[in-house]
Design a protein around this nucleic acid. Structure first.
Length: 285
DNA sequence: AATATTGCCAACCGCCTGTCG
DNA sequence: TCGACAGGCGGTTGGCAATAT
């Protein structure tokens, strides 16, 4: 029970890989490529199942893997992407060159999650609609409560990080400051009473998903889903019925604020990416 | 010094999706 | 259309090392 068919066909070894096994796998894939993973162990002379070989190669032996601890920039990017994508580790890892989904997931579960929770930040994967009023100020860096992400009173722009540019810039901090994608939300009816504003988003939609639409759209522009569609975890565009909660109209439902009416709007629009990065850097290790 | 606890992370497990005959 | 199979993914586990008692 529970094992793949490829694992049942032969006596397979489990557990940690030995250096000898690593060498066999590296030598084989370097010479022939992996091809069909289920045939790799037989051809490479390994007593492992194909899945185990694939995992070992992807997570540990691949030559393009980055080693070492995550930088504050990477941590900030992971937090940002997690807020947008939730626990879609493979999607998140695609924006971190040299990092694997497993590595990102482990880093999140062992480090970031605990740090954020200890600082009163809720689990963002749960998409809370209402931020915890008792949370610390940094808890509100998410769109739900961060005024820095509200369209600025000057230009009504919402500033979104561009994963592609971050990828190309190698997470250079200076570029992170510069390489931000802008888009213009349409005019929206002004709030009748600006003082009644509370730091949460109206209408019950999830700004995380609005961002996701744009983030994905930024990279996958030719494959941009329609509003009746969404992108599943395999990067496939699927009917929204599969993920009804992810269907949003990213334009029509964008809130906007009349000039000067937003009580929490910063004078200068800054990126919350920098904000998160600063928080992570300041957290005790 | 010995033992217990904690944290990290490599690896496994089960499920889902896509492909092919 | 259906079933078998492989690839891929997220959740979870277990072993090891570091730290605390």
């Amino acid at each position: 029970m529970g094992h793949h068919s490829c694992c049942n066909k032969q006596k397979v070894k489990r557990g940690l890989w030995s250096p000898e096994e690593d060498e066999k796998l590296i030598n084989y894939i370097s010479s022939y490529g992996h091809g069909c993973w289920s045939s790799v162990p037989r051809l490479a002379g390994l007593q492992r199942c194909g899945k185990s070989c694939r995992l070992r190669w992807i997570n540990y032996l691949r030559p393009d893997l980055k080693r070492g601890s995550f930088s504050p920039q990477e941590a900030a990017l992971i937090i940002e992407l997690h807020r947008i994508l939730g626990n879609r580790w493979a999607q998140i890892a695609k924006h971190l060159p040299g990092r694997t989904d497993n590595e990102v997931k482990n880093f999140w579960n062992s480090s970031i999650k605990k740090k954020l929770l200890s600082h009163g930040v809720p689990d963002l994967a749960t998409f809370p609609d209402i931020p915890n009023p008792n949370a610390s100020p940094e808890a509100f860096f998410s769109l739900n409560g961060n005024p820095n992400l509200i369209p600025s009173p000057q230009d009504h722009q919402l500033y979104l990080p561009s994963p592609t540019s971050m990828l190309q810039s190698g997470f250079d901090q200076a570029n992170c400051n510069l390489e931000f994608a802008h888009f213009q939300p349409p005019p929206a009816p002004p709030l009748s009473d600006p003082s009644s504003y509370v730091p949460t988003w109206p209408l019950g939609y999830h700004p995380h998903l609005i961002q996701e639409d744009y983030v994905l759209g930024n990279e996958l522009a030719p494959m941009m889903p329609k509003l009746s569609e969404t992108i599943n975890r395999n990067d496939r565009i699927v009917p929204s019925s599969s993920f009804p909660h992810e269907v949003v109209d990213p334009v029509a439902r964008l809130p906007s604020f009349p000039s000067g009416s937003h009580p929490h709007a910063p004078h200068v629009p800054i990126s919350h990416f920098d904000y998160i990065e600063a928080i992570i850097s300041s957290l005790p290790s």
